[in-house]
Design a protein around this nucleic acid. Structure first.
Lengths: 205, 205
DNA sequence: CTTATTATACTCAAATTTGAGTTCATTTCA
DNA sequence: TGAAATGAACTCAAATTTGAGTATAATAAG
């Protein structure tokens, strides 16, 4: 998965130890796009080491008695070509429109109106804050960034704006009660109707 | 996670067996938003059964010698209140702008221009097809759907449109080569600069 | 009418993620 | 100045996901 790509990519720039990789991922705002967990990071590092895509460049002693020393890793030649492959694999992955609210919408009619309004509002706030953060990043770091990284931040902002509009609309519909309306037809009627029409479906995968 | 919500939600409508749940998820295009795996589905069903949120309503024998019988599940009272809780948890989850291309952009400069163009084009095609699918669904199923489900599909479409615009821009920049440009400043210069400026960062979580 | 594919209905080991905890150092704040 | 909170640097078991496989029936294709 993409954690491995991130690690290899960062080690292309210079040698780093795992915690430093973690810092950098945060500094560069990559974790706007996924939840960064220590567990996944260290697991991926171990995997990469075992596959000899990275290797220990240096082991630095850390003050304190029974504390682990930190290992600074470097990317190997094998690792460089693996990064190349991982990059194309990443670009080749199927993308899904994801948002916690999407699937919740399927059963939103079973929920309590006020509670739903509150939570949608919370989503909206979070989304607005994200947009704001991305604007600030573009302002103060924009010019320094490689073209790709700049586009990543712009992407976060644009996707955020779409999300915001969508949430605003949902909120409005939650407030006037129309979002909580059940189906106008019964399940049986719908299934009957569907049999007489073509039902478009994603292909498996 | 959301698989459990989907199962409970579907069992609110009527009793179903796992494979039927799978079908319904696909029929309703919910799998546009995530990868539906049999493993996760059956695992979630087992969990729900063990927690007594669902129970076997009927066990139907299936023709054939050593084939498993199918179990039709029903939601329990306990399950109904669990669904309520899961719905709010779902609405309360942090949302991330996700797209495979986002993280790839971080290292896109290490890749091959032609290869990248091809893959971006492939993403664009897939995205356009998704938009098309959603338009067809809205046309032929739109009126039948509960308000929430209709908004879900509209959301898929809208997010798809933003994605499309973004991919078009990336493709253009990949073609004229500007996307592959590295940083204009060195890492050291940037880090130096950053020390003198505020670096906005997401709070942990 | 025979073969090939698709649909049904799962199971399972291995890979990965999750959430929580650990230890010591440094900074903050009363 | 001492206590509390935060940061650094991990570790680990348990939960979950992944990918691939199984078996049979029904349907489609040649």
């Amino acid at each position: 998965m993409s954690m491995k790509m991130l690690i290899l990519g960062l080690l292309m720039e210079r040698d780093r130890h795992p915690y430093e990789i973690r810092q950098t991922i945060k500094q560069r705002n990559w974790n706007e796009s996924f939840k960064l967990r220590d567990g996944s990071l260290y697991y991926a590092v171990d995997q990469l080491r075992d596959q000899e895509l990275i290797e220990a460049a240096e082991i630095v002693a850390v003050p304190g008695e029974n504390r682990p020393d930190k290992t600074i890793y470097r990317i190997t030649e094998k690792g460089k070509s693996a990064l190349d492959k991982l990059l194309y694999e990443q670009l080749n992955q199927v993308s899904y429109p994801q948002h916690p609210v999407f699937l919740a919408l399927a059963f939103i009619r079973y929920g309590d109106q006020e509670r739903i309004e509150q939570l949608l509002l919370k989503q909206l706030k979070a989304c607005e804050e994200r947009i704001k953060r991305m604007e600030v990043v573009l302002e103060i770091k924009g010019v320094f960034l490689p073209a790709g990284s700049q586009m990543m931040i712009k992407g976060f902002k644009r996707f955020g704006e779409t999300e915001k509009e969508f949430l605003l609309e949902l909120l409005e519909q939650a407030r006037d009660g129309s979002l909580l309306k059940g189906p106008t037809w019964t399940l049986e009627q719908i299934e009957e109707y569907q049999k007489t029409h073509f039902t478009p479906q994603m292909s498996e995968e």
